[in-house]
Design a protein around this nucleic acid. Structure first.
Lengths: 253, 253
DNA sequence: AGCATGCCTTGATCCGGGTCAATTCGCACG
DNA sequence: CGTGCGAATTGACCCGGATCAAGGCATGCT
């Protein structure tokens, strides 16, 4: 609909939805899928996993999934749409902590404080699986695979949190950001070279700790260097190899 | 011994050691203490907790507790001394991830990859409690309090990891760093206004993503503003209130 | 249609902190 | 005792990215 002039070159990719529509088997691409498989689809434990999950949504762009200070009762797996998490300091400045794609999980950082330490805001129309944490925690005690899965998800997020820490150039940050997104889409089975940026330039900049103008300039330069094609929020990676090279300092392995 | 001229003003603080010397009860100030208490000192489960812990050390300054790529088998609680964790990228540049004081735990970020993603290096003579993770994990299945404790430690570390992410001035970073250290010492029962910096200026700078020269300049300025007294690595906070104010954007609540 | 609003892009200017360099200090060493 | 080395401090200079400002281009509202 938008970006008419690019429509021919960049046909709309299929909307990423991590839900096979089968209520019994949950989402095939969901972050919990391995836990579900380990538990066994046929075992009675699965019935319990069924009990503690609840489909919620839709949330419209700008709506909150949870807010800072809300008591922690559940974690959420994104079924469709995109979410940003953010903190707002007392001066009212926003700090974007992360973006979450279909199949990924939000709310893990609330386990310790027992209250959500940040807001979660939908960037477009979004649906979730809501997992009651007390129930999940109890289940984890009985099914080692579920416990292990929770440990792994928590530990994994520890690793990614330190990505944007280093002092890296704007080029490195933006390239790494694009390749990170591409990789995460690829894992869930979506196109790794052509996708829609659900977040504004301002959000990207805030997340990368840059000014929006800088992000804009870097993207323009990447385009002029034929590394990407971009119009509005529709993106195509023309030279992922080179991009990975630029952002390598920030990317895994 | 060192810093003769300051000896009168800054008498050596007691060396921070998180170990009450009672082998049966573990370290009273250790991060696991609440889990131990919850398990109950008298219950048979404690005997199992005993089995999976092992005192290791001493490690001398510069020695590795673990290295990048080592298979993950255990987490370590610092009993005495100080540790830095760091990554070394393929260009050989060091990236300091964190400093760990007596009572704190290292290795949690290795659960997911199953190999340590970073080095842990002793900054001074250090001793540890080594917790076998498979055993710990199994115990967590049987004792909900232990499972909850692991979840909480992981989630807590998620929160602190995002501290140094924001784009903050050198003053903010250094002030927040000093107050963070002070708070962590205070929690373990040591002086919050007078302590020894076990790490070099270079390590501090690397951790804060600043140049060593900048850290040096900021500390000099803080001293000339009568916010701190510092000579070599011996530090006294003269105006913690003001320091907290400067670093507030980076500090909890 | 006409206007407002938000998002994005591009240009001009400025400054915080990085880099390079010189010096000092403390300490281990022969 | 000097020598050498690493850590720390301080000064001079420079650059990447922030900030300020202006303009384009959608979309939504009246």
């Amino acid at each position: 609909m938008q970006s008419k002039s690019l429509a021919g070159r960049l046909p709309e990719p299929p909307s990423p939805i991590a839900d096979d529509g089968d209520e019994t088997r949950f989402c095939g691409t969901c972050a919990f899928s391995s836990a579900c498989i380990a538990a066994g689809y046929d075992k009675p434990e699965l019935a319990e996993l069924q009990c503690l999950v609840e489909h919620v949504g839709p949330f419209r762009a700008g709506e909150h999934i949870f807010r800072t200070g809300d008591p922690f009762r559940a974690i959420f797996a994104v079924r469709a749409g995109t979410v940003k998490t953010r903190m707002v300091d007392k001066e009212g400045r926003e700090q974007v902590l992360g973006f979450y794609l279909p199949g990924e999980v939000i709310g893990l950082n609330a386990i310790y404080p027992e209250h959500f330490p940040c807001d979660a805001v939908a960037l477009d129309t979004a649906y979730f699986c809501r997992f009651s944490f007390p129930a999940m925690s109890a289940l984890a005690s009985r099914i080692p695979a579920v416990q292990q899965h929770l440990f792994r998800m928590l530990s994994k997020e520890l690793g990614t949190a330190s990505l944007l820490a280093g002092d890296h150039s704007a080029d490195e940050r933006v390239a790494a950001f694009l390749m990170d997104l591409a990789g995460r889409y690829a894992v869930r089975g979506f196109s790794a070279t052509r996708f829609h940026l659900s977040m504004s330039r301002g959000d990207i900049a805030n997340y990368l700790r840059l000014a929006a103008e800088t992000v804009s300039r870097v993207l323009s330069r990447f385009r002029s260097q034929r590394l990407i094609e971009i119009e509005g929020r529709e993106l195509e990676l023309l030279n992922p190899k080179k991009l990975r090279e630029i952002g390598q300092a920030l990317l895994p392995e």
